[in-house]
Design a protein around this nucleic acid. Structure first.
Length: 221
DNA sequence: CCAATGATCTTC
DNA sequence: AAGATCATTGGA
């Protein structure tokens, strides 16, 4: 079966609050078209950030800076930022202009261009020396670790600061309808690593495909 | 468990 | 202009 990547989501798909969008994005395909080739993964883990109230959000208390500017724009654009001096994190902007909300993409199930993703991560798919686990015949373990973390997936897809503000209904970095999960297949948990956010750290705004082996962590499940 | 590493934000 | 912080990761 050929994978269809010509479709796009309508703008209205994105102009909802970040919690709604975080749930909706599970099963969407994130596609990166570059000179090297096409890479893509299905979204299996997300987190919602709702400014200006949410103390865990960069847009907390209406903080409008050159970094957070895109969060204040209309939904459907990319918010990319550097964390810990070495990792870029990718977010999908949610809601309408003036409402600074976004969804952090934390993990993907690799779908297209696995060889290329591995190369960008500094790994070799073909010469993987890791022993297969129970019931495995090939490099499943390595494939699971390709995009299972917010800093890893941006490297695997070569998402850079140049993608800051890009329209995710375009042709270089974009989202495509791919798979839909019923409520029973989805779990919510508190967000990862936002202990500084006071009462907001407890909000169940992380969404995961419950049985996916491609999650960044199984914490809280 | 802890260090890496640099842009951003706060405070002086 | 200096200092703290940080939506992470990989290696003891």
């Amino acid at each position: 079966m050929q994978i269809e990547i010509e479709k796009r989501f309508p703008l209205e798909f994105f102009t909802v609050d970040a919690v709604t969008l975080a749930r909706r994005l599970l099963g969407a395909l994130l596609v990166r078209r570059s000179a090297e080739g096409i890479t893509a993964g299905m979204i299996v883990e997300t987190e919602a950030y709702r400014g200006p109230d949410d103390r865990a959000a960069h847009s907390c208390s209406g903080r409008r800076t050159s970094r957070t500017e895109v969060m204040f724009g209309p939904g459907g654009r990319a918010y990319v930022y550097l964390i810990y001096g070495m990792y870029l994190l990718f977010n999908v902007v949610a809601a309408k202009e003036g409402q600074p909300e976004a969804v952090l993409i934390r993990a993907l199930e690799p779908v297209l261009g696995l060889e290329l993703m591995a190369g960008r991560r500094g790994l070799e798919l073909t010469t993987d020396q890791n022993p297969p686990g129970d019931g495995e015949r090939g490099p499943e373990r390595l494939i699971r670790s390709l995009c299972n973390g917010p800093g890893r997936l941006t490297r695997a897809l070569d998402i850079t600061r140049q993608h800051y503000g890009i329209d995710l209904r375009g042709d270089e970095l974009f989202l495509v309808p791919y798979k839909e999960f019923p409520e029973a297949a989805v779990a919510t948990t508190p967000r990862i690593n936002v202990d500084y956010a006071g009462e907001w750290k407890h909000m169940p705004w992380r969404f995961v495909v419950r049985d996916s082996p491609f999650l960044s962590t199984r914490r809280h499940l």
